[in-house]
């Protein structure tokens, strides 16, 4: 029944079909399942949207989700959250659903594959400069790397790489270990314990989804925040000059 053996660390290793370099493994299959589910839920939930005050339960659920994500983005970025919503919201929904479906027997979360988490981390790694450049132009964004001094360039780049790596490994490690421990416990003590651990797994899965999305938002916000800090500095400088004058 099980798709993945215990010796398999990652669902990448379960290959269903291969043609040269191209192959279809369990990670991709389960990713498509999740994508399908999300699309179906979104399509059904928004089938009969209404702007009246009485709304369907599906619409209510989706609105709660979207409004919650919007609020979280707003709190982190202190900006209009609309343009970050598709990326951050999809990160959260995808990871959350991928992790929550672990209660379905036979399912292997794609987030337990380092390839998936690396893909998501790479997307965040690209999104940070992308949003930064959209926000303040290429030069404006690049200046961000030589702050506070040009000597910091190397450290800034290393910091970005390492945090991307941390993002990928954190999610992978948590979910993979959870899955592995569940499988091992199932082999050792098949009653009760696996249930408790799976409950715990649901909790950590949701928390990991939240952490991943929030951290992505924090990184993006830190990339776009450079300009705002500079603007604030300009705005405050005349008053600070005046203060200096009065003091002297």
């Amino acid at each position: 029944m099980d798709v993945m053996r215990l010796r398999h660390i990652s669902p990448d290793q379960v290959i269903f079909w291969q043609w040269g370099f191209v192959h279809i493994n369990a990670t991709l299959v389960f990713t498509w399942v999740i994508m399908g589910l999300l699309v179906v839920i979104a399509a059904v939930g928004t089938w009969k949207l209404t702007s009246e005050t009485r709304i369907s339960r599906w619409q209510n659920l989706l609105e709660v989700l979207v409004a919650g994500v919007l609020q979280q983005i707003q709190e982190v970025s202190h900006e209009k959250p609309d343009r970050y919503l598709p990326f951050i919201g999809t990160l959260f929904l995808f990871i959350a659903l991928a992790n929550l479906l672990t209660i379905v027997p036979g399912y292997v979360p794609p987030t337990a594959s380092l390839s998936t988490t690396a893909a998501l981390a790479i997307l965040v790694f690209i999104a940070v400069p992308a949003y930064g450049i959209m926000d303040q132009g290429l030069l404006g964004y690049l200046k961000h790397y030589i702050r506070p001094t040009p000597f910091m360039v190397v450290f800034n780049i290393l910091g970005e790489l390492s945090r991307t790596l941390a993002l990928a490994v954190r999610l992978f490690g948590n979910i993979m270990s959870g899955t592995k421990i569940a499988a091992i416990l199932l082999a050792v003590a098949p009653l009760i314990f696996p249930v408790l651990l799976q409950l715990l797994g649901l909790l950590t899965g949701l928390i990991q989804a939240y952490i991943f999305a929030i951290l992505a938002m924090v990184y993006i916000a830190s990339g776009t925040r450079a300009r705002r800090q500079r603007e604030q500095k300009y705005q405050t400088s005349p008053t600070s000059l005046q203060e200096e004058n009065t003091e002297s």
Partner: peptide
């Protein structure tokens, strides 16, 4: 290969959800 595929998968998902979910819900 899986990384590349997952990146494409995710981008596709972002596009679909942007159309089906975020756009509609935020508009409503």
């Amino acid at each position: 290969f899986t990384v590349a595929a997952q990146i494409i998968n995710f981008l596709v998902l972002v596009g679909i959800l942007k159309y089906f979910l975020y756009g509609r819900i935020t508009r409503a």
